[in-house]
Design a protein around this nucleic acid. Structure first.
Length: 608
RNA sequence: CGGGGUGUAGCUCAGCCUGGUAGAGCGCUUGCUUUGGGAGCAAGAAGUCGUCAGUUCGAAUCUGGCCACCCCGACCA
């Protein structure tokens, strides 16, 4: 491809709205152009890269035995009602709109395709002989992201590879899951990404039912916990750590301290001259337990759940919701399913504590007579002589001790892990290796769904005995745009992008320094043609521009191999071969340069 | 959804406070010079100043509504 006949629009200016490196470079290199918030056009250079990512994904999916199909972007909303996800997705689900009764009013843009694939499975996967099977597509998704950001890292429209597997046993699902897991590793390796699979919030099956594939970079929105010895990796939404050891300090007598207007942890620790790690944070939540569906049809009443975490720790919503379910089940029966909690309003807190907001504590909480469940974080359960609120406006208590001063195990009290891990916590594997927190971009997610959708939609097959069984499912997603952006996040310098060979828009750039010099142009064109013939994606910079200008552009768009053809060097019978990632310049004959570029291009593709 | 900010040429921005016929740099077009790390000179093309209303003889500029975009937070199958 000749530059002058192609469409490349680079810019010297740094766009004002771009903060993430990938966003800035994708705009400067003219790979994408924003049309609206979270909505981008892929210009030719960017689209070439995206297509290469797509092709790698497709190859590895096929290698893993998955079968490609394509499902619609427009879905009837009824389908989403079947699985109750219209409510669950909320504003994320984009509706087409239109007047009542109009067909448009009953259409949504697909944010994912579990419902559509399950509808297909329900119709056609009727026999165990058809299982297992893995169907995938590469298709646009639409989500009403509240806040698109960081260029193509978080958008309202994006390209996703989504695969769905169907099985007749949990063992078969495990196998299918492992195949996808392995395929994902190959895909991200081939794309040149420094990735890490981490345990993610697990699905209905529990255990290791879900892994996210993360690219470690500060531009990411997720935080992952990795131990130094690499024996544990998890998203902080899920990460656990070794329990903290019991503090054995001698228990002192409780004292109340007048703390006028000192409400926050920072204020109180400064006032009491203690540290947040010696404080107990008392968080009051409300949540509605599942109606047990027994005698009465009365709607379940919201219950109060009090969570205790150390002053320097944050409560983890998922863990807390699960613990609330357990606490409820222990006291009232039920299946222990998690309960979605919300922070209590001011009135509830006042009623419970008898004090203004900011002075709650566990030891005198029962005196108001308002019933509540107590969930004590493991780190709190081992504290000694802690400071906390006194349930009395403008007073805190010091030397509060779990067990002695408030029950941590009982009919309405449990100890659980309900906090986020922090940097320095120890590996849950018992190795003693410290956990480090790193920011990361989620580029892929593999998930054991179980029968969540097949149950809801009645997707069954007949087993060997002719009995109807519910299909067991897995689902596996990859964000293609995110692969591109995170490849740039991980491979760039102050001059521009440094593409991995496998997903570079072109593999080789031939720079003709004096395009009006016949010999130079002829040589450059020959190199270009020979490489193209050999199947190497080659761009020939034939613009009549100054050398510096062209080199700056070359560094910016980051094509891995650069061959410079200039008048002076050509007089000595050589051209220059240079890698984007190195300052070294190799001066060799044009024919040798062709061979060199070929082997570099081929070598860069077989990293899998 | 809460808080903050910005809308003027394809891009980056000035002009607004103190109202009076639209500016610069980059990019683009033409010519000459230059030619190994984003060249110089000259001449050009290009903007309903986000939008609607109001104030005024007169609004990019003052006032109000709306819209869009960005950042922080909340949220994220």
């Amino acid at each position: 491809m000749r530059w002058t006949q192609y469409f490349i629009v680079t810019s010297k200016e740094t766009p004002k709205d771009a903060t993430a490196a990938s966003h800035r470079l994708m705009l400067r290199t003219g790979m994408v152009r924003q049309l609206a918030a979270g909505i981008y056009s892929y210009l030719p250079l960017g689209y070439r890269s995206l297509r290469k990512v797509e092709e790698i994904v497709r190859e590895e999916m096929q290698r893993a035995g998955a079968i490609e199909l394509m499902m619609p972007i427009l879905h009837p909303i009824d389908l989403w009602e079947e699985t109750n996800r219209v409510a669950a997705m909320g504003d994320v689900l984009l509706r087409l709109g239109g007047p009542e009764g109009d067909w448009r009013a009953s259409m949504v843009l697909g944010p994912t395709h579990e419902e559509v694939i399950t509808e297909i499975a329900r119709a056609y996967l009727k026999s165990y002989k058809q299982l297992p099977i893995n169907l995938y597509q590469i298709q646009l998704k639409f989500r009403g992201e509240a806040r698109p950001k960081s260029g193509v890292l978080r958008t309202r429209e994006f390209l996703m590879k989504d695969a769905y597997s169907f099985h007749d046993s949990v063992e078969s699902l495990d196998e299918g899951y492992q195949k996808m897991y392995d395929a994902y590793c190959r895909i991200f390796s081939r794309c040149g990404l420094p990735y890490a699979p981490v345990e993610a919030e697990s699905g209905p099956i529990g255990g290791d039912a879900s892994h996210e594939f993360m690219v470690l970079t500060d531009a990411g929105e997720d935080v992952v916990a990795l131990t130094e010895n690499k024996d544990y990796a998890a998203n902080t939404e899920r990460a656990v750590c070794a329990p903290l050891a019991q503090d054995n300090a001698e228990m002192k007598a409780i004292e109340e301290v007048h703390t006028p207007n000192q409400r926050t942890i920072d204020e109180v620790t400064a006032f009491l001259k203690t540290s947040p790690s010696q404080m107990i944070k008392t968080l009051v939540y409300t949540g509605t337990p599942p109606s047990t569906g027994k005698k009465t049809d009365a709607p379940a009443e919201p219950a109060i759940f009090v969570a205790l975490v150390r002053g320097d720790h944050d409560a983890n919503e998922n863990k807390l919701n699960r613990a609330a379910g357990k606490a409820w089940a222990a006291a009232s029966g039920g299946d222990g399913a998690s309960i979605s909690l919300e922070l209590a309003d001011e009135g509830t807190i006042k009623r419970l504590t008898g004090a203004d907001v900011g002075f709650a504590g566990p030891h005198t909480l029962g005196k108001s007579g308002v019933p509540y469940f107590l969930i004590v974080d493991q780190a709190v359960s081992v504290m000694r002589n802690a400071a906390t609120g006194a349930n009395k406006t403008d007073y805190h208590a010091v030397n509060v001790n779990p067990v002695r001063d408030f029950a941590i195990n009982g009919e309405r009290a449990i100890v659980a892990d309900i906090r986020n891990v922090v940097d320095g916590d120890l590996s849950p594997k018992g190795s003693g290796s410290p956990i480090r927190l790193r920011k990361a971009i989620e580029v892929g997610h593999v998930f054991k769904l179980g029968t969540k959708y097949s149950d809801a939609m009645g997707a069954t097959y007949l087993d060997k005995n002719g009995k109807a069984k519910t299909l067991i499912m897995g689902c596996y997603g990859i964000g293609l745009n995110r692969i591109m952006a995170s490849a740039i996040e991980s491979n760039h310098d102050e001059n521009g992008i440094m593409w991995p060979m496998s997903i570079a828009p072109f593999q080789v750039l031939v720079v003709a320094l004096d395009p009006r010099d016949d010999e130079v142009m002829q040589t450059a064109a020959n190199i270009h043609d020979a490489l193209e013939t050999a199947g190497v994606d080659t761009l020939l910079d034939d613009r009549d521009e100054r050398a510096g200008f062209k080199f700056k552009d070359a560094d910016l768009i980051g094509i891995p191999v650069r061959i410079t053809v200039g008048r002076k060097a050509l007089a000595d019978g050589v051209v220059e071969v240079k890698l984007r990632t190195s300052e070294d310049i190799e001066k060799i004959a044009p024919d040798a340069a062709i061979e060199r570029a070929k082997s570099l291009a081929y070598a860069g593709l077989v990293t899998a």
